[in-house]
Amino acid sequence: MRDVTFRTLHHSAFTMPPGEEQRARDFYVGVLGLTEIPKPASMRPIGGWFRSPADGSGIEIHGIPDPDFTPNRLGHPAIVVDDLDALAERLAAHGVTVEPDDRFPGYRRFHTYDFFGNQLEFLQEN
């Protein structure tokens, strides 16, 4: 059996209630500052795709409407940032709660929740 090397994570996905694309934009673009990118024509036109930076060299997050939506309070993307304090200030300025967590050695981090109640983790190396 040949070994496989996992190189990078292409994207993470979150679910949201159907018809809430604007609310997803409000959070992922308006609060986090990501850029919404067009979906390929072969994909369903609902939901939203968000990226930072816009050139695709960083992260990408896809929103997927789910008629049986329940917020994901445990499973979450963990996103490394270059300025955790600036992001915490940005979230607080938009009324978004930041929950600091010091249990991960070598990193400062916090958890927060999007407008649908899905958990997100942000980290910065010490």
Results as ranks from 00 to 15, higher is better:
residue 29 V to N: 03
residue 49 W to C: 00
residue 6 F to I: 15
residue 39 K to I: 05
residue 67 P to G: 07
residue 59 I to R: 05
residue 6 F to E: 09
residue 88 A to H: 04
residue 13 A to W: 01
residue 85 D to C: 00
residue 108 R to D: 13
residue 10 H to V: 05
residue 74 L to A: 12
residue 68 D to H: 10
residue 71 P to W: 03
residue 20 E to F: 08
residue 39 K to H: 10
residue 13 A to R: 11
residue 27 F to G: 01
residue 95 G to T: 02
residue 53 P to E: 12
residue 18 P to N: 05
residue 86 A to S: 10
residue 30 G to I: 04
residue 93 A to L: 01
residue 1 M to P: 09
residue 64 I to Y: 08
residue 39 K to A: 09
residue 29 V to F: 02
residue 86 A to F: 09
residue 96 V to Y: 11
residue 63 G to N: 04
residue 35 T to S: 11
residue 119 Q to S: 11
residue 82 D to W: 06
residue 65 P to E: 12
residue 61 I to F: 03
residue 88 A to L: 11
residue 36 E to A: 12
residue 26 D to N: 13
residue 51 R to G: 03
residue 125 E to W: 12
residue 107 Y to R: 06
residue 74 L to N: 11
residue 110 F to A: 05
residue 64 I to L: 09
residue 5 T to F: 13
residue 50 F to T: 01
residue 32 L to G: 07
residue 60 E to N: 01
residue 113 Y to R: 15
residue 108 R to Y: 06
residue 7 R to A: 14
residue 34 L to R: 03
residue 78 A to Q: 04
residue 82 D to L: 10
residue 6 F to Y: 14
residue 13 A to K: 12
residue 48 G to E: 09
residue 50 F to G: 01
residue 73 R to P: 04
residue 69 F to K: 05
residue 111 H to V: 06
residue 16 M to N: 01
residue 118 N to I: 04
residue 20 E to T: 15
residue 58 G to D: 09
residue 98 V to G: 01
residue 80 V to A: 14
residue 15 T to K: 08
residue 20 E to H: 15
residue 70 T to S: 07
residue 125 E to M: 11
residue 100 P to I: 01
residue 105 P to E: 10
residue 117 G to I: 00
residue 97 T to K: 13
residue 111 H to C: 02
residue 45 P to Y: 04
residue 104 F to R: 13
residue 8 T to W: 13
residue 118 N to F: 03
residue 29 V to Q: 06
residue 9 L to M: 12
residue 61 I to Y: 08
residue 47 G to H: 14
residue 68 D to N: 14
